[in-house]
Design a protein around this nucleic acid. Sequence first.
RNA 1: GGUCCGGUAGCUCAGUUGGAUAGAGCAGCAGCCUUCUAAGCUGCGGGUCAGGCGUUCGAGUCGCCUCCGGAUCACCA
Length: 592
Amino acid sequence: MFSDKLSRYAAAAIQTLFNHTLSPESLTIQRTIPAFREFGDFSLVVFPLLKISRKSPEETARIIGEQLILLPEIAQYYVVKGFLNLKLSPQAIIAALGESAEIQPAAINKAELPVVLEFSSPNTNKPLHLGHIRNNLLGYSVAAILEAAGYKVHKVNLVNDRGIHICKSMLAWTLFANNETPESAGKKGDKLVGDYYVLFDKKYKEELAHLKSEGWSEEVAASKSLLMQQARDMLLKWEARDPEILRLWKQMNGWVYAGFDETYKTMGIHFDKIYYESETYLLGREIVNEGLKEKVFFKKEDGSVWVDLSEEGLDEKLLLRADGTSVYMTQDLGTAQLRINDFGTSRLLYVVGNEQNYHFEVLKLIFKKLGRPWAGNIFHLSYGMVELPEGKMKSREGTVVDADDLMAEMKATARSMTEELGKIDDFNSEEAENLYQTVGLGALKYFILKVDPRKNMMFDPRESIDFNGNTGPFIQYTYARIKSVLRKAGVYPGLNPDSFDAGLHPREHSIIVSLSLFSTMVNQAASELNPALLANFIYELAREYNQFYHELTILKEADENKRNLRLTISYQIAQVLKSGLNLLGIEVPERM
RNA sequence: GGUCCGGUAGCUCAGUUGGAUAGAGCAGCAGCCUUCUAAGCUGCGGGUCAGGCGUUCGAGUCGCCUCCGGAUCACCA
């Protein structure tokens, strides 16, 4: 807000003084660093202007300052070396306060393409774990932020419900389960199916070991494996729509979806549309055939289909197996095309881990080779892994942090901490449960989202996620604290700008400037697809408010104008904290 | 080995796209509740920004080299 305006003013001043036209965006205007906050709110860096002014840095800053001080919004300027510090007038500050919690969507008038945002993309063999939590939270938050910035967003999920791996769990269940069901086992369906996937792997390894003990080599043993043979047969039958196999497949998937739905619900995640690979891979095969016909792809002697990307600096990539069955890439070709068919020309965003960078590079290149005009709209929002102190999580080795368990633990921690503090003894049990859920999940979500998505992050299960300091509960607490003050204040009159001619307390002045940056931060988080920017911004704001709160009295302030101002600031801060947290998928409690 | 990503305080992370004296939290120590919610606030200690060279008025940020981690290069997904 302010910085845009100041850029324009400075550009105009430079035009007047030096008869030189510069775009406002080319100027560097930054928030004044705290050490000089007393002398300015924003600073213009004048070093790049010396060629134009042909004067010393100090002199250049001074004459621009002299020009700017003529504006009513600028109260004073102060030159330090090559920095022109500008202090805003109390009237300008007060005027900004009223609209500080509003988001001005930057994309709304730019005719931006709608966004189809894929996230979650679970595999029906694997119960959701901490890695999926990061994916889901990122996807959900990025969608919310893009919408706030004025984009039309379609949230889509792609369920990986077909393929050789799915046949493995089906086979293991057929052979070893004795018709066990989630009900009979007392287990969530996704957990039950996941257990059979792990069991397949175990039995397969036993079989391999046995074969090798008979003297076969690794490769021969793999080819002689009866279990693998049966799984492959099952995939062939599945692709041939064998009724018996389809029936089993539907049954087991139904169990998994019931389990997933429960986890999504707790996480607070939902989608506008769910795609299933079982429905998209056929279109993928058509695209492969189209590419074959147009000689973009080629067939090897064994019948398998490939694309040659050596000209692009990559290698050959398989698109269809020799037996005609599909691979991952096959279905992703179909899925992308289907989304364009469903939503028209769009930006296709994929929230997928950075381990698949290569896959998406290939996907883009293939569509480019096929001449799709929208190939350039594919964007892989590649996020880093969640690592444990021992290293990467591995489903098959059981070193995963289960999503359901973790969320339950967070809630339990919130419960014990709340009980210890004893502030909500008048809550009924439903209100209390809601609070534990809100705070526990708030801690988890913030913990994940405050980290730059592109970077790997560390999670140590032995150290519980903090509730103090730079955390979700800290921000929630600040919100609840403000609400408590506002409840006690009751109704209060609006502000009279003229009553602040003498100036504002530095804390008041500074926090309003911080507040005014909210809308810019949301738009920046949207253009960078980075919720962490927003998370860290609202944390700083909450921290600043707590300092304000400790230093100044609000309700007991005798001067009515000051009391009103502080209440208004408190209200606006609460609004921003709430809306900022909501953009991260985090709820706020009215009391805690 | 090729390609890509990363390395900032004991630990976990920021660092506004090249700007001023590199910041938070946690952990440690010392204070602050008769007063608007102490899940808070204040203070102290803690740094060769992996290392080197370069570009620049100015480099944690850009370029090159080296070292160290990770991912990927599957008829797995």
